[in-house]
Design a protein around this nucleic acid. Structure first.
Lengths: 190, 190
DNA sequence: GGATGTGAAGTCGTTCACAGCT
DNA sequence: AGCTGTGAACGACTTCACATCC
């Protein structure tokens, strides 16, 4: 809406776009503060920056990628990160020499691939806060342990296994097989 | 549990593993039928097959993959599909010759890459029911339209755009940037 | 005896409806 | 006059608690 030059937006309009109730929109926003103007609506520009601030997107998050296999390479060249406030600033593997060739042939300016045993050192140095686990499932928990040791508190886990971490650390799983199961269920029941 | 040779399991044990309430487990299962035995619990083997049947996993789902870029290639070699009841039986791209070399060097027995314009024909022929969209975002909606035309009713969308389909078709989005936003929020609020 | 299946109670989130501002 | 912010009403889901059955 900002790109379209729209100045104000009402909760009703937002609700429409999001397919939810207008009161829901207002309640949810009101939970974080008073962002609207009665009788007018929400200023698009302000609302956008308020939401970004609330979500913690008013900074660039520095990420590590662990496991430069097929999926890892795909993510290294995932341009959409750039639009968001995320940046992969270090990639790790158990065998960097083996993957460097394969990756660099694909990427113009490849992120350097480091040996996993340097994670703690590099995490400090580059202030890594989030890690993407793209190793085989068998290695995922081990990697998670290293991340905990390196005090990287946010983990996005692409490996199809449950991993556990201590309090204060966050894991989000990208389990698309769960979404497939969901599709299979919906399709099975007409 | 079946692999460990355990014969019976109680709702309390299941609840424990899933970090939910025991009554929840019983209610949810009871919604689909009576699978347990009072005073005993649930027979692991039976429960497993009942759940598979409920979820529509008592068959092999045939899938198409559209867009053989980085992510597409990664999924083509994603071994974990084999454990589940899903199989990619056809892959499509706008320029098959270009991707065939790159893909086959990675996969022992590569799935053949077909031109996207054959999708409708092949969908009928191979009874494709689910499609994975791994194209650039700009192509995703166009591909979705082709899938609708080919009557492939289940879509797992990896492209970071919202796509719309008519009633009777299902789209599930793998938006991991949303999960990243989620992590960013949690980390920002300590 | 012991664990399920399930009404009843409780809790949480959503929606309504309107007072309060601009 | 119009739209937000919000207490109150509503609805849905979760948990309790126990009758039921193996």
């Amino acid at each position: 809406m900002e790109e379209k030059g729209e100045k104000v937006v009402s909760s009703a309009q937002l609700a429409n776009k999001c397919m939810v109730n207008a009161a829901q929109v207002r309640k949810d926003l009101a939970y974080f503060g008073e962002f609207g103007i009665r009788g007018v609506g929400y200023y698009v520009k302000d609302l956008l920056s308020d939401i970004k601030r609330i979500l913690g997107l008013n900074k660039e998050w520095k990420m590590a990628l662990i496991g430069v296999g097929n999926l890892g390479s795909a993510l290294l060249s995932y341009k959409d990160f750039l639009k968001q406030n995320y940046k992969i600033v270090a990639a790790f593997d158990i065998d960097p020499p083996k993957v460097i060739g394969r990756v660099s042939e694909k990427l113009g300016k490849p992120v350097e691939i480091l040996h996993i045993n340097r994670i703690k050192e590099v995490a400090k140095e580059r202030k890594l806060e989030i890690a993407l686990i793209t190793t085989p499932p068998s290695e995922a928990q081990g990697v998670a342990n290293l991340l905990v040791d390196a005090e990287i508190r946010g983990i996005l886990n692409f490996a199809p296994v449950q991993i556990t971490v201590p309090d204060g650390f966050m894991v989000k799983d990208v389990f698309f097989t769960t979404l497939l199961d969901n599709l299979a269920y919906l399709l099975s029941n007409q």
